[in-house]
Design a protein around this nucleic acid. Sequence first.
RNA 1: GCCGGAGUGGUGGAACUGGUAGACGCGCCGGAUUCAAAAUCCGGUCCCCGCAAGGGGGUGUGGGUUCGAUUCCCACCUCCGGCACCA
Length: 842
Amino acid sequence: MELQDPAAGDAPSNEYDARTIEAQAQAYWNETRCFEADDAAAAANGDGKFYCLSMFMYPSGQMHMGHVRCYTLGDVIARYNRLKGKNVLQPVGWDAFGLPAENAAIQRNVPPAKWTYENIDTMRAQFKRLGFAIDWSREFATCDPGYYRWEQWMFNRLFRKGLVERKTTVVNWDPVDQTVLANEQVENGRGWRSGALIERREMPQWTLKITAYADELLDELDRMDGWPENVRAMQRNWIGRSHGVEIRFDVRGEGVAEGEQLAVYTTRPDTFMGCTYVAVAAEHPLAQLASERDPELAAFREACRQVKAAEEELATMEKLGRATDLVAIHPLTGAELPVYVANFVLMEYGSGAVMAVPGHDQRDWEFARKYDLPIVQVVAPKDESDEACDIDAAAYVSKDGVLVNSGPFDGLAFEAGFDAIAEALVAKGAGERQTNYRLRDWGVSRQRYWGCPIPMILCPTCGPVPVPDDQLPVELPTDVTFKGVSSPLKGPDFAEWRKVCCPECGGEAERETDTFDTFMESSWYYARYACADNDEVMLDARARHWCPVDQYVGGIEHAVLHLLYSRFYHKLLRDEGLVVGDEPFKRLLLLGMVNKDGKKMSKSAGNVVTPDELVDQFGADATRTFMMFGAPPDQTVEWSSSGVEGSVRFLKRLHGQATELMAGGAVPALEAGTLDEGLKTLRRKAHATVAKADDDFGRRQAFNTVVSAVMELSNEIGRCADDSPAGRAVRHEALTLATLVLSPIAPHLCHALWNLLGHAGALVDARWPEVDDSALARESVQLVVQVNGKVRSRVEAPAGADEDTVKAIALAEANVQRFMEGKTVRKVIHVPDRLLNIVVGG
RNA sequence: GCCGGAGUGGUGGAACUGGUAGACGCGCCGGAUUCAAAAUCCGGUCCCCGCAAGGGGGUGUGGGUUCGAUUCCCACCUCCGGCACCA
């Protein structure tokens, strides 16, 4: 199916011609700049503002259907809110730093900056064809120095506040992309971009103390009712707060200093009396100490260190350990417990050591079996009938039992046991209650070129020193040539660039050559749109007026990455007084994928449909309409070309109905009081459609049912053949309402229909229609009559009729009588205007 | 293993607060129009019995609550997504 090309054929001028209609509407929007948001109004009336944002795009060079879906959803919400009289801001920009630009540079010898800006131009052109209501005056790319300078400025403030640290830690190293990745960027042990198996390496890197905000980030989630539950659950999971006890053991053995202690973290202090050994990580200082006199242990530690395996493999790897000649003293019993070095203990979590209770932890149990360590049962099922507990077969991990073999703690249940043992440890000075998190500080150093330079100077005498604010931005040199995968900034061409004087001591120092993780840019871009033109400050009062984003739209893949970092960064900005409010995104809509032939659209699957070809073939409105109609926003939508053709047919029919009506000349005024039943029905449908669509757009965000509601209305209009003045007036009203309701979804056609129907001004300046309640009212309604819950008849009754009236009508029905024959009425349930259920028995 | 979500015609989905299951679209079948086709328009389309009126069954499975359950509760199955050596 092809739209007719007006240049190629002699299409009648009153046919629906998407190409012309869309070009005209877009020209109008561009010329009037009607989507440029009003800062002054946002400042004057905070309640009237509506900030609608779709996650910005990476300029890969090609827009894909995911972008179309995301931006169409955002645009529908933005346009609906404009109709509702809100002062709407909907900007776009480009998430422009990142690896693909470097890969292009390496493979094709194009400088990353040039590649990026050219891609932005290509994509902007594709993007504009879809007719989004965007304020283009605020557009920026994150690789603009005018943008990233503020990121550098903020970083330095955070450094001075102590929220930035340079730490040498075990990091995720991507051997293909030659860079460190954050935990959030490792998927199944592989780099999220390269797919390469991640190695563990020790490296100095810059980190942001997101853990300092862990509690706030977690607790706030409970109050964020504009966010989908699954995303909140994922973030809770990711932060992973647990409550437990830190227990300190005295340690004895050769070379152990007097008073030296070994700390472990446990969430099961209730089982502490069953602890039969302790295990430390290979990197733990005690492991180091013991290995100095034990070559085999030293070899074991070395083997652990050499493991470059992915975390996924670590989880399934054989649990190995080695005994040391050290002992730990159980603080409550005084027992001497052996200290093991074990490959499964993580130095990064807790204190890098664990107490082992093989009776009640499966991993400890397996380890104890393997190395022939004692297994003691300290928890027993509450009563015999409970689930079997055979400590010789497996650990008993249930928290439902009671303590046994635990001296003074015998008989206590989980919580009481937890508290009693925690208190006993505190009283002895051998422990404290502690909260732990799975969340780690955010490592932001990347060893790549195409990113925001980290504004730091490494001085051999003063250590790391921030580049003074008046020397910002540290501009990323763009005239570069790549020699291999490594950043040119680290190569000989930039030896001079790297050499600087230390701002503190004046001595010779080196610039940091790492760049920021690109999630740094995307963590605050939403706020910058409010004042993108300000080159004096990072954020001005306008950011306080426009933020938070009222509606954020994007992909589920960012559920923990971008959406957690932004929440964190927003709190950092808040604490600097740059924004107000605790959260950046009030309401969040995460969309499902776009599939074709049951598979995700991708180059490798060979099923890619490009937005350009769709707009050429079907028009922007039909593309947008099908995108909204195919499935609810959060579900996967199956792209179907016959489905889009259905949308074309629908738009064509609506256009035809309006054209035909207006061809009949001037439409008389509507006299609502004097309509016959048929016209009343059409009017009722029209106003019911407005009411339903209002709820669907605003509260439910069910845009698929908005489309079907307007389709139903159009079908109803088609059924009305009344060409009398009253008939034409009612159809005119119905078409006007259909146009308004559909306009957020198919804005070009509706722009044209608005004027075609004779309305003055432009549709973008129109307001959402008022529902005429009298149009919804009806004299009689159809009710369902059930006998014993089964539908036996449908009857007509006056609207609002009481039970007796409806009952009288229902009992007159032959089929109702048939099923009541010889039985007594036990009960009658009457749902006014809907249903009557007669319950009979006997 | 833990957490979150979903199972409805040939198909995408609708049924929002427990009240006519299958709206709307796609596909398919039949008809009109056409020399013919495309496009368009009209009618039909959950399954079974019946000429019909009507009846019976039906929302992953099994139970429960209720006058009434796709909707609420319990158990289970399947699928999707996330997390997972986290002590």
